[in-house]
Design a binder for these strands. Sequence first.
DNA 1: ACATTTGGATTCAAATTTGAACCACATGGT
DNA 2: ACCATGTGGTTCAAATTTGAATCCAAATGT
Lengths: 172, 172
Amino acid sequence: MVSLTVLECLNLNNRRTLAPMGEAKWLSDDEMAAWQAFLTAGALLDRRIEEQLKSEADLSHLQYEVLVRLSAAEGGELRMSELAGSVVTTKSGLTYQITQLEKAGLVRRRSCAADVRGVYAVLTDAGRDRLRRAAPGHLEVVRAHLIDVLDDDQLRSLREGLGEVVRRLSGG
Amino acid sequence: MVSLTVLECLNLNNRRTLAPMGEAKWLSDDEMAAWQAFLTAGALLDRRIEEQLKSEADLSHLQYEVLVRLSAAEGGELRMSELAGSVVTTKSGLTYQITQLEKAGLVRRRSCAADVRGVYAVLTDAGRDRLRRAAPGHLEVVRAHLIDVLDDDQLRSLREGLGEVVRRLSGG
DNA sequence: ACATTTGGATTCAAATTTGAACCACATGGT
DNA sequence: ACCATGTGGTTCAAATTTGAATCCAAATGT
């Protein structure tokens, strides 16, 4: 479907077609190819993940990530804002999804003693079960299409390089 | 917002908490960290991009990508399906966005001579202008938050490693 | 104590996305 | 020619996402 040959030409063609002002603004062909690969790999992989999770566990990827964060947290609970930050959604988006997960019995809300405004999302037993059921298939997809395709160096680059990208985007 | 310390513990905690059956199914801590970095970097970066494009050019990232593909194509036009494939959306999703872009005057539809069913999306002059206006700011965001954060090796890993990931996900 | 500002979460309407159903045509086999 | 399938795009309703507005409570300043 996605022709890399075409993708790699994008910048080249566009430099000719759109040429703006200072060349400083553009990416080199290698940089462009890296960016497009990053973007496309993310999109295609996410599509597979979404499929797998929906069909095998009736969860969206976002919902799965929410369950993962909760299961990894102390007492299986996290504040709404923290959760929203760590799965990278908007506050209102999380409110909606937690409501869905609550309807499905996988999570419940608990209000915070210290701060009346605060709300905890709490993983239920059913939620933990669902996650336990979903995880192997999910991780298998991630492994098959991403992890096992990369060699050790490439995997380290992802971890270190993109780790730094995350750190900078989170901080400032 | 996103604590890597926590992220790196996810798999460890979950192995303890959820432990399924054969260990073969799980990812090592390094693999998990790489996957989470990939996922989170993509999400955070996309958020910045969406912001920049919306505020500076009144385009969504998807719309921008559509314009890029068209501008790189012969005659500034592509068939709907090809376009859908290369930007990784569903057919109906593309139909919707092309309609939006058409309303904005950035693209128009042209029916295909050879195949009556076929439809070409064609970049208009206004579309090319808009893209020309949007590109520098967009590429600057990509450069600042991704490209310039990575060293040459890491960039090569993205290009080659994720390129292979894309190739495999596209083919089979 | 009181007014102001900030923070945490939800609500609401509008925009977008999703996927199944559909329509119209092309293609291939008989 | 005829029928069965496959393709390319659109349509439609339902689900989700977005962002601004809102509500209520905490924190801060006076």
